[in-house]
């Protein structure tokens, strides 16, 4: 490990608490989401971001701050990130933040980040509940820094002034060089996020965790939360449930293949 350490990386990682969507089910009678008993987790893509930040700190020296905007219980994901090895946490929590779309979310987070010193901001590629992948680029724009999305590999150049990353594309990846400060969004392949160990979990409780409200953030409540959101969710509904169709069992492969090809031709799929 290189600890020559004249580079000192200050990394901010915005993280989101999300329901484990794989366990979210629709109530067949009412057609609504069943969220009772569905565990809340640290957004999986944000784990890559936290891990990347911690690895940079371990290699180059530095400091990792995790930030979340959410209800009071979102503190849990901050504690998890602290247990993994982040140094500090900030919880932006206030009724006035509620109902935010991605623009209002990015605005709130960027106002907080503007008050801090940083070389890198690393977001997850996307949150598995809202699924928009918009908050990262929007924060970058509001901070006026460059962005590179879908980062699969990350290296800091020797002088600590540039990073070279692999940005996933449709057919492979691009090697992109960008000057710091910059914002990256992390995707699968960047690393294998560590599991917090007992020591980490104990230490996490003693690490600084600051709570910030609209008042302490010092921005107008009109520009954030539902009021500051240009988009509104008018309605949510259950998608049409897909049902199984034809199922062939116990037929010899040739006959089954014939039926399949006939079926596909009848559907106009081939």
């Amino acid at each position: 490990m290189d600890t020559s350490g004249c580079t000192f990386m200050k990394v901010i990682v915005p993280v989101k608490q999300v329901p484990e969507v794989a366990e979210v089910r629709i109530n067949p009678e009412t057609g609504t989401l069943i969220r009772e008993g569905v565990p809340s987790i640290l957004n999986p893509f944000d784990e890559y971001a936290v891990e990347a930040a911690i690895q940079l700190k371990e290699k180059l020296g530095g400091e990792v701050t995790v930030v979340t905007m959410g209800p009071p219980q979102a503190k849990e994901v901050l504690l998890k990130a602290l247990a993994m090895g982040a140094d500090k946490a900030i919880l932006l929590t206030d009724r006035a933040f509620a109902g935010a779309d991605t623009w209002a979310t990015a605005r709130t987070l960027s106002e907080q980040i503007k008050k801090m010193e940083y070389d890198l901001v690393i977001c997850g590629k996307q949150a598995i509940d809202g699924d928009t992948a918009q908050v990262g680029p929007e924060i970058a724009e509001l901070l006026g820094i460059p962005q590179v999305c879908y980062v699969r590999h990350l290296e800091v150049e020797e002088d600590g002034k540039f990073v070279v990353v692999h940005r996933g594309t449709d057919e492979g990846y691009e090697v992109v060089r960008v000057k710091l400060p910059a914002l990256l969004t992390a995707t699968k392949g960047l690393n294998e996020p560590r599991l917090p160990n007992i020591m980490g979990i104990m230490k996490a409780k003693k690490k600084p965790l600051e709570e910030v409200t609209v008042t302490t953030l010092g921005i107008s409540p009109d520009s954030i939360g539902l009021k500051g959101s240009p988009t509104t969710v008018r309605k949510v509904f259950a998608p049409e449930r897909r049902k199984g169709g034809i199922k062939i069992e116990g037929t010899d492969p040739k006959a089954a293949a014939k039926k399949l090809v006939e079926f596909l031709a009848s559907k106009g799929a081939i």
């Binding site: 199984g244 492969p253 089954a256 293949a257």
Partner: peptide
């Protein structure tokens, strides 16, 4: 199979070559 429009229960190493043949 719960979401497949057309499911074949079988060994893919037998079924897929047969499908290729048919196509």
């Amino acid at each position: 199979f719960e979401i497949a429009d057309f499911g074949i229960v079988g060994d893919l190493f037998e079924v897929v070559p047969a499908v290729i043949e048919e196509l």
